[in-house]
């Protein structure tokens, strides 16, 4: 398979239901209006990439979706729950269905890989016996091709391996939605491509819906079913990789040059 082949997953949004619906979303930091009336839909089984300049509010957007930040105004429905109306325990239950891959991986550096993966399972008492927990941990590690790292510390792993372990930790709760915050940033092009293909495999295997924040155009080309351009706090352009790459709009074109 060509490493930079465009994601050709057949995806027709009218046949599918929206798993995330955002309407009229506003978020400011002081005088800096980051999100300015943003509307967005993520459909079931879709990989949607959000492109935009640094500081355009992409990470803020996914942090609002997962409930790490509160919007100033607007509505965010995730799997039919209005996240602004949920209390902390309801939010915790909703987060079981929504995985989040941090840009910095955010592995717990005082825990081994096994403990990192067991952590979300034990929090939610999903599998109580040791054998079942171990089986899920090994399954998640096999999915990312790193079963031999199970007893290693995060500090012993390379950047690409840490990213894979973080992805395994995200996958272990079998989320319906995954939010990726710049998944290939800081990785060499080959490892970046491997991670992109892994994201694609996850989409196919688990039928997950994903929002991917990325500047890496090679990653975007591989994983995106649909790309949304975030400009001045709004979604200004939407389309497939091919559609946007031939756009006449200068603000869009400069990302694909």
């Amino acid at each position: 398979m060509d490493g930079t082949a465009v994601n050709t997953n057949i995806f027709t949004k009218p046949d599918r239901d929206a798993v995330i619906t955002i309407r009229n979303l506003y978020k400011s930091f002081g005088d800096n209006k980051v999100l300015n009336g943003l509307d967005l839909d993520l459909y079931r089984g879709e990989n949607m990439v959000v492109l935009g300049k640094s500081g355009s509010g992409k990470s803020v957007l996914i942090k609002i979706i997962i409930g790490l930040m509160r919007p100033d105004n607007g509505s965010v429905h995730v799997l039919n729950h209005d996240i602004c109306q949920l209390n902390s325990s309801q939010l915790d239950k909703m987060r079981v269905k929504v995985g989040f891959l941090f840009q910095s991986n955010a592995l717990y550096d005082s825990m081994t890989v096994r403990e990192n993966l067991e952590f979300p399972l034990r929090r939610h008492w999903i599998k109580t016996t040791k054998e079942e927990v171990n089986r899920l941990v090994m399954e998640a590690l096999k999915n990312v091709g790193l079963p031999h790292t199970v007893d290693m510390m995060p500090s012993e792993l390379s950047g690409g391996m840490r990213k894979r372990i973080a992805l395994a930790r995200t996958l272990i709760l079998k989320p319906e939605i995954i939010l990726y915050d710049e998944p290939t940033t800081g990785l060499d092009p080959i490892t970046g491509k491997e991670i992109s293909h892994l994201m694609l495999d996850i989409q196919k295997k688990y039928n997950t819906s994903s929002i991917i924040i990325s500047h890496d155009i090679n990653c975007v080309k591989i994983v995106a079913n649909r790309i949304v351009m975030l400009i001045d706090g709004k979604c200004e352009a939407t389309g497939t990789y091919h559609e946007l790459s031939i756009s006449k709009d200068n603000r869009v074109k400069q990302f694909f040059e």
């Binding site: 942090k63 790490l68 915790d92 987060r95 079981v96 840009q103 592995l107 717990y108 979300p120």
Partner: peptide
């Protein structure tokens, strides 16, 4: 230092998204 380091490397946020207080 430990909690500060966890905060700046987003490990505390990772706990929130794992559904942990």
């Amino acid at each position: 230092a430990e909690l500060g380091s966890m905060k700046v490397t987003e490990q505390i946020d990772a706990m929130y998204v794992s559904g942990t207080n």
